[in-house]
Write a protein that binds this DNA or RNA. Sequence first.
DNA 1: CATGCAATCACCATAATTGGCGATTGACTG
DNA 2: CAGTCAATCGCCAATTATGGTGATTGCATG
Lengths: 217, 217
Amino acid sequence: MADIRVAIFDDDKRIRASLEILFTHTSGFSLAGSFPDCKNLLKNIDDAKPDVVLMDIDMPEISGVDAVKKIRSKNPELEILMLTVFDDNQNIFEAIVAGANGYILKNRSLDRLLEAVKEVHEGGTPMSASIANKVFKLFQKQNNPAVSEDYKLSEREKEVLALLVKGASYKMVGDHLKISYDTVHSHIKNIYKKLRVNSMSEAVVFALKNRLVNIFI
Amino acid sequence: MADIRVAIFDDDKRIRASLEILFTHTSGFSLAGSFPDCKNLLKNIDDAKPDVVLMDIDMPEISGVDAVKKIRSKNPELEILMLTVFDDNQNIFEAIVAGANGYILKNRSLDRLLEAVKEVHEGGTPMSASIANKVFKLFQKQNNPAVSEDYKLSEREKEVLALLVKGASYKMVGDHLKISYDTVHSHIKNIYKKLRVNSMSEAVVFALKNRLVNIFI
DNA sequence: CATGCAATCACCATAATTGGCGATTGACTG
DNA sequence: CAGTCAATCGCCAATTATGGTGATTGCATG
């Protein structure tokens, strides 16, 4: 197995120095580069060719979050691990959305750091339980209308609507649900009445906007 | 501190029996109810008044996922912990979106189960690392349009597509853009070809999914 | 047991969409 | 200046969707 190449971005000279030593002398890792700021960020990364970027979240001038955004726009595949002092930092959340792959607290042990780098490199997501929880809750909220208005669609009607959202025609819905074309027609008429729309595309947009059906997956 | 009242839904008699014993005899917990299926789900919950519901994800007739949806529609505050055998189950994911608060593998220790119940009750989210990772990635994807692919739609075509998403018909698009019905038809044919779809609703869903047009959120 | 409601199906007429074949104009480009 | 492409328009045929008025079955509920 080739070493995991790590690039460091941190304005604290001592931390940088200790990380440099760590990744230079630990087998399985190698130091791709070490930088005190995010000037020439993309060029530095281009030269260093790291597998994993360690990014301090609190840096002067260009913040860690902005750096993540910048990196993501050019290197969508690069793994980025954020370094932070506090775990209730709003920046962490922004960094996640911007595309960071995980983060680790600065006061954790070096072993834990090595583990986290490995984990990120293997596609994982090292992070604290409290942030994981926040992400989870927000995810649910985004995907679950919970108490969005009740349009009183029957189960069958929701089923039909979900198929329409997937691009099905009347006939396809009928085939899929093993019911006749006319029954599909009937359900759709009722759906339109309840949602107060007059066409399939309106119904589809309505369903997506009001999260009556779940897309994604 | 009052006991945490736990209600059990599992079709496996032995598991139910052992959970009943566990929650009856462990201090800090009490058994609110125990049921082999989800018939009378809401009434059972109404009677049992649990703080936390333990729900088997694979049950006959009404699945655990549907049960979660049902509970959520009436008791948005109730904590639900899913029980499952495998952790790569698609159902888990659906359960999460439906509003489950966490899940635990059935083969874990009873201690771990008690911990998880406590954690859920305190607003946490016990779950395996692999699912947490999936949730995290999907969350990022949803919040980060990143670099949506370029489907090479012309400006006019984007304009037409945006109107379709608003529920417009051919005729309405024509009126709005002051062009003929046949020109609208022409644009739409080209859009369908570029997006590789064959109907308006498909095009609309495609546009929303891939953020080719900006609405809501 | 009447009442309502969900789910199923049928028929009809009209409207809308879809896909195919064109065409012309003007702007940009190598 | 020839070629390309976006934008515009037209016609035709086939398919699909929409809206209306029915009907029957079965289930649940008071």
